[in-house]
Amino acid sequence: MSKEREFLWRRLHSLLGVIPVGLFLAFHLSLNFTAVGGEQAYNDATGMMDKVPPALLLIIEWVVIYIPLMFHAFYGVYIAFTATLNNKRFSTFRNWMFTLQRVTGVFLVVFIAWHIFQTRIQKALGAEVEFNMIADIVANPVMLGFYIAGILAATFHLANGLWAFLVSWGITQSPRSQQIMTYVTAIVFVILSIVGVAAILAFV
């Protein structure tokens, strides 16, 4: 029964991008935003995580983050590489969004892999996740640039993905509703970007 499953995989890819991956991103950036209130505020907020029993936390991490994220990432890379980009001939706004969605997606696979290596894997190897861990990372200006690019790519990919989600599930059909959702998702992009970038700059 491996045949004729592409429709389900594609719809699943669209759904998982919003729930849970998109929701997780919003939560993750909001939690990081506590760093704007200083080192203590951030350590208190992330310290809440340690109150969850480790085994339960691990299950939640796999079910809510790693498995959906990996499916979304690897299936997304396949989708990105089956496209034939033609922005030179069709330089419309939507076609640029199409291309940027694929470019940011591929970049995010690299960024997130690196980010997980620098934080979650280091934690598994015994490092403590707290303010100074991130502060040490972004003390390097190259890394700070890489992280800002990663945050902006992620917020763009989510906002534009939300727009595509609404079309793919048949919620926004008319050109007018799609146009209005373009504005709404643009606002989502701006707000999430401000939250995310302000948070990373708080570690500098």
């Binding site: 045949k3 004729e4 499953r5 592409e6 429709f7 594609r10 719809r11 669209s14 989708i79 496209a83 033609n86 069709f90 419309t92 939507r94 076609n95 969004m97 199409f98 291309t99 969605q101 727009w163 595509a164 079309v167 793919s168």
Partner: peptide, 15 residues
């Protein structure tokens, strides 16, 4: 169109 290569393969470039 809900099979392989069908409707869900649209990427919304709107070209």
């Amino acid at each position: 169109i809900m099979g392989d290569g069908g409707l869900a393969n649209c990427g919304n470039s709107q070209n």
